[in-house]
Amino acid sequence: MKVNWQGVFPAVTTKLKEDGSLDHDAIKSGLNRLIDSGVGGVVMMGMVGESAQLTQEEKRTVIRLAVETVNGRVPVIAGLAETNTASAVQYAKDAQALGVQGLMVFPGLTYKSDPRETIAYFRTIAQASSLSILLYNNPRGYGVDLTPDVVAELLKEPTIEALKEETYDTTRVTDLINRFGERLAVVCGVDDLVLESAALGAKCWVSGMANAVPRESVELLKLAVAGDYERARKLYRALIDLFHLDTHVKLVQYIKLAENITAGYAETVKAPRLKLEGAEREKVVAIVEKTLANVRALSK
């Protein structure tokens, strides 16, 4: 299956039992719920999926469960977040053998590579498999910026097809589309910039809060891509407080709590993260409940 970089691709939460082990049934159920809601693909073990906290065995188990459950209905993209090139290459090969359609590749973790090193890292991974590659560009989080000049070098690799744009600078969307046109799919990577990004030409969105509100997220992107901005703005405004939580350092806990409220899945996270409690938890619950009320009001 060739990846069509259009639609909502939730950065899927990794469902866990209370003891921190993988909850296989919940992982399968969650994927079916997202697909039934109309998503265009699923991204397993991005940052929201707690990739950096999972063991190598757990990562491969999640991939296997996703491929089996999705069964070709939408593309399965595996997050690739490793600390060294050799491990990244092996992961890419294993992910392809397990049947995914693409990789969302982070910069090498724990080291802020310079442009020459960055290009070499991504190129080596791209050459390790025939999978479609989504570059992950989040300089705030990882200290490495895939500038248009760096991207130009990387696009010499034919399997590098898309870039998850998370610089929080919407001018980058226009600059990338102007420079690379159809050669590069510019993918929104920030929930509270999705309408702005779609207005500038992005047609795909890797979303964290789509775990909690998948149908509404799918509808929002459809409206925006179709140019129905009046309706899109109303829905966006109803969702925006929830989407702001996607940009916080505790976005994993916030998204899992929101998903617990909307779909009943456990809030359990991998340490060193801990479940929310006290006033912080109450604040997030209030935002989720207000958002759901806002959405219900739109349908009246």
Rank of each mutant, 00 (worst) to 15 (best):
M1E: 11
M1I: 09
N4P: 01
V8L: 08
V12T: 14
T14Y: 12
K17C: 06
S21W: 10
H24G: 00
K28Q: 13
G30C: 02
G30W: 11
L31I: 14
D36Q: 10
D36G: 11
S37A: 15
S37M: 08
G38Q: 10
M45S: 13
G46A: 12
G49C: 06
A52P: 00
Q53W: 11
V62S: 13
R64G: 08
L65Y: 05
L65M: 08
R73I: 00
V74F: 03
P75D: 13
V76C: 06
G79I: 05
L80N: 15
S87K: 14
S87N: 15
A92C: 08
G102Q: 12
L103E: 05
F106W: 06
P107K: 10
L109W: 05
L109C: 03
T110K: 03
Y111T: 11
Y111E: 04
K112E: 14
R116A: 11
R116D: 07
A120F: 02
L131T: 11
S132Y: 14
L134N: 08
Y136N: 06
N137P: 06
D145E: 13
L146P: 07
A152K: 15
E153F: 09
L154T: 00
L154A: 02
L155P: 04
I160R: 00
E161Y: 10
K164S: 04
K164R: 09
T167Y: 07
R172G: 01
V173L: 05
D175I: 01
L176F: 11
L176R: 09
I177K: 15
F180S: 15
G181T: 02
L184G: 00
V187F: 04
G189H: 06
G189E: 08
V190N: 12
A202S: 15
V206Q: 14
V206L: 14
A210R: 02
N211S: 02
A212M: 10
A212K: 07
V213F: 12
P214V: 13
R215E: 14
E216W: 01
E216M: 04
A224V: 07
A226Y: 07
G227T: 07
G227I: 12
G227E: 10
E230A: 14
R233D: 11
Y236H: 13
L239A: 02
D246I: 06
H248R: 11
K256S: 01
N260I: 00
A263R: 09
P272S: 03
E277C: 08
V295K: 02
R296K: 15
A297V: 01
A297W: 01
